[in-house]
Design a binder for these strands. Structure first.
Lengths: 122, 122
DNA sequence: GCTTTAGATCGACACTTGTCAATATAGAAG
DNA sequence: CTTCTATATTGACAAGTGTCGATCTAAAGC
């Protein structure tokens, strides 16, 4: 399974940019960020991500995800691809099976972007 | 300006459901949540939200938002409507002008949903 | 080699979305 | 009442999205 391109707007090391809520987002940053939120903007993908993220061992076999929905196997595969392209999950093949795991840095960063600093929150 | 329907999945008082990352999201919750993330899944709307949220006085006149983009006035109006329908912002008319403000409860809730509890984060 | 099984990819189709120009509405000011 | 200005709404259209059935690929077992 291929590496995905890094999501620059989510790079923790990127200097002076605290969050969405404190300073106007630049056009470039918005363009990098929007696809990540767009990937979360579908109920099936939200549930997939939630199933993957909440899994004890940290990873879930696709063979467990697919039967959890009343959708075709190609459809689930397509949603997993979008989540992976958004950088939210990672996949690894082991034998016949493919396992997906959360990339917590990305959700952490999203959470930080949506968190208003204490001063602003009063 | 009309009231929007409450976003139940974002209701803080809703009992046993911590976040996306700790337990599998139910289909109903996912269906309520997805439109909010979908509203964030466009670069123009991300920038609009950011401009509104980061504004000192807490509110911004549409007349300041529209010229900040190289898009037609109806297009900006449309994006603001989607953000409002998602519950992310609120609008108030004063005279000829309309002012938008952030609804911080909603972004707070989103941030909480994406935050993994300390134990999970190790 | 063949067969089987797990996933991914392809092609098609209905539905949705972002955008605009044109028009409508709501106040304010003559 | 008429006009002007600020937003919202409407209608149209190209582009994008979610879904499926059909097909392909990769690994395992025979």
């Amino acid at each position: 399974m291929p590496k995905q391109e890094p999501v620059a707007a989510l790079d923790q090391t990127d200097a002076c940019r605290a969050g969405l809520l404190t300073a106007p987002l630049g056009a470039a940053q918005a363009a990098e960020l929007a696809p990540v939120f767009k990937a979360l903007g579908d109920p099936v993908r939200l549930r997939l991500l939630s199933m993957i993220a909440s899994r004890a061992g940290g990873e879930v076999c696709v063979c467990e995800l697919t039967p959890a929905f009343e959708l075709s196997q190609p459809t689930i595969s397509h949603h997993l691809k979008l989540l992976r392209q958004a950088g939210l999950i990672d996949s690894e093949r082991r034998g016949t099976w493919v396992y997906y795991r959360l990339r917590p840095e990305v959700t952490d960063r999203l959470a930080a972007l949506l968190t208003r600093p204490a001063e602003v929150a009063r």
